[in-house]
Design a protein around this nucleic acid. Structure first.
Lengths: 235, 235
DNA sequence: CGCGGCTTTGATGTTCATCAAGTAAAGTGG
DNA sequence: CCACTTTACTTGATGAACATCAAAGCCGCG
């Protein structure tokens, strides 16, 4: 169950990387060569901090494999999850062009691999290639759009709906399976969808009692997806 | 009090526009000329709908003068304000590169002026000028960052804190004065900071009774900014 | 072993949404 | 211009949803 994808890209040039398609497929061979030499691969174990909130923005960070959380400490000192980053997400993207420091921490919540490219290099490629600039504009918009819309969607649900929402998200968007290991703690779920741990637990138990899901350790199995969907939308 | 700024730009070329500085100052004269002929000026009265949620994205929209709200109808049919756009904001920016349709409606909440440029033209300028692409990346990041962070900030406050937050925002960020006309209804405030009208009213009244603000019609006067600030942060 | 962090359940209290009802303001049609 | 409707605003009362408090079990780790 846990046979993680191997890392085919380590010594590779970016031209050969399977993830090239996302944004970089419009670059010339020459430009790709530049990327290859300028990039850095970072392997992170679950729990490792890649970026700390407040760190200077120096690099372009791309999640190749794994899963990461974006989190911040709010002005009143509470931990708050901004979102979950999936493979092919540009985790540091939001702040890259707008802020000198990272507004969020980036923390691996599964064993992960990040591609790291100097900001200066990316900037140079933007200057050189209009097509690349356009791809980047698209990607940056998509990422921030998704984050904002998810937040808005969560906002107008109450607790049961939020839990259903997040389970549905992990099931469909992240793991593409009705059965998966929850990569984050109950506390973190609470931080992500803005509720207290106790209520996360309570509602998960409730769903278990109602046979909508089963829970074994960190493994969630969604037994009645339709019912969960219903709760997500009307609960 | 209501002598709105006149519209100096109507027949102007974009090169002479006072707002040129924001993103367009890196364009060549030739490119600016292109902008000038391709742009359109739209005057809107308070309440007019500029873009309806679901409209096809065809244009680049820039708020020159006035104030606008971004709103959407959530999946469960409730009205939800995504944010308030101020002059120099690129109100349709988020969706411009990421979605074929506008995810939010754009509605003037004061008499406003919008500059409208065909998307194709903007795209062409991105291809042509790396510097322009870079400016655009910066601006797009700033706008979405601001929207998301504001949402996050509001999320972890309770009602009193939210009202204080929004009053503070209008006072400092929009009108730069402790006295101003609320451009939106109580209902809309509720939609913006996610609470019921009744409670918006109740808490405003409470603030009035506590002499923190005074209310005359739509005019708000913040009498004790420090106290409001305190409530915003700890209330 | 024992400590700290995560989880779970129950009991209690607060915050907020909802319901109800009434006033004021603003538009509509005769 | 006035009755009429509609929309925004306002206050109070009630109950539901949720946070908080308390206590105990679990597990990994030094």
């Amino acid at each position: 169950m846990n046979d993680k994808m191997p890392t085919p890209c380590l010594g590779e040039s970016c031209g050969e990387c399977g993830f090239r398609s996302t944004v970089f497929n419009c670059l010339s061979n020459e430009q790709l060569e530049l990327l290859s030499t300028g990039k850095d691969l970072l392997r992170a174990k679950k729990g490792e901090v890649i970026i700390k909130q407040g760190d200077k923005v120096k690099d372009f960070i791309f999640l190749r494999v794994g899963l990461a959380k974006l989190s911040r400490v709010s002005s009143d000192g509470k931990e708050q999850l901004v979102g979950i980053a999936r493979p092919k997400d540009f985790v540091g993207l939001l702040s890259l062009f707008s802020s000198p420091v990272h507004p969020y921490s980036i923390i691996a919540i599964e064993d992960s691999e990040f591609c790291i490219v100097e900001f200066e290099l990316v900037n140079r490629l933007v200057q050189e290639s209009g097509k690349f600039a356009f791809s980047l504009l698209q990607k940056i918009s998509q990422v921030s759009d998704l984050l904002l819309n998810t937040k808005l969607d969560i906002d107008n649900r109450q607790l049961r709906g939020r839990i259903a929402f997040i389970l549905d998200l992990f099931s469909k968007e992240v793991y593409e399976s009705t059965k998966f290991n929850l990569p984050i703690s109950r506390k973190e779920i609470g931080e992500l969808i803005d509720m207290r741990v106790e209520n996360v637990v309570r509602i998960l138990s409730e769903f278990r009692k109602d046979k909508i899901i089963s829970i074994e350790g960190t493994t969630i199995d969604i037994l009645q997806p339709e019912k969960l969907e219903w709760i997500k939308n009307h609960g």
